[in-house]
Amino acid sequence: MIYDGDEVEQELCVDLYWSFRSPYSYLALHHVRALAKAYALRWNVKVVYPLAIRTPDFFKRMDHMWRPYLLIDTQRIAESLGMPFRRPVPDPIVQDPRTLLISLEQPHIHRLTRLGAEAMLRGRALELVDAVGTMLWDGSVDGWNQGDHLARAVAAAGLDLQDMETAIARDPQARDRLIETNEAELRAAGHWGVPTFVFRGEPFFGQDRVELLLWRLRQHGLQARSN
Rank of each mutant, 00 (worst) to 15 (best):
residue 8 V to T: 12
residue 17 Y to S: 02
residue 22 S to E: 07
residue 24 Y to S: 06
residue 26 Y to C: 03
residue 28 A to Q: 01
residue 29 L to N: 06
residue 29 L to D: 09
residue 32 V to Y: 05
residue 33 R to M: 13
residue 33 R to S: 12
residue 42 R to C: 05
residue 45 V to E: 01
residue 49 Y to H: 15
residue 51 L to N: 13
residue 52 A to I: 04
residue 62 M to Y: 11
residue 64 H to V: 12
residue 67 R to V: 11
residue 69 Y to W: 12
residue 75 Q to K: 13
residue 76 R to L: 08
residue 79 E to V: 05
residue 81 L to W: 06
residue 85 F to Y: 15
residue 89 V to D: 15
residue 93 I to K: 06
residue 93 I to L: 15
residue 98 R to A: 15
residue 100 L to K: 10
residue 102 I to N: 04
residue 108 H to K: 10
residue 108 H to L: 14
residue 113 T to G: 02
residue 116 G to A: 01
residue 117 A to R: 06
residue 118 E to G: 02
residue 119 A to H: 00
residue 122 R to C: 10
residue 126 L to S: 04
residue 126 L to W: 11
residue 132 V to A: 07
residue 133 G to L: 04
residue 136 L to S: 02
residue 136 L to M: 08
residue 137 W to L: 05
residue 137 W to M: 02
residue 138 D to K: 00
residue 141 V to W: 11
residue 142 D to N: 09
residue 144 W to R: 05
residue 146 Q to N: 13
residue 146 Q to G: 10
residue 148 D to N: 14
residue 149 H to K: 06
residue 150 L to C: 05
residue 152 R to L: 08
residue 154 V to D: 01
residue 155 A to Q: 14
residue 157 A to C: 05
residue 158 G to P: 01
residue 158 G to Q: 03
residue 160 D to P: 02
residue 162 Q to C: 07
residue 163 D to N: 09
residue 163 D to V: 12
residue 165 E to S: 10
residue 173 Q to C: 07
residue 173 Q to Y: 12
residue 177 R to N: 13
residue 181 T to P: 01
residue 183 E to H: 07
residue 183 E to D: 13
residue 186 L to N: 01
residue 192 W to S: 09
residue 195 P to F: 04
residue 197 F to S: 02
residue 197 F to I: 03
residue 199 F to P: 07
residue 210 V to R: 01
residue 212 L to Y: 13
residue 216 R to G: 04
residue 221 G to Q: 06
residue 222 L to M: 06
residue 222 L to R: 01
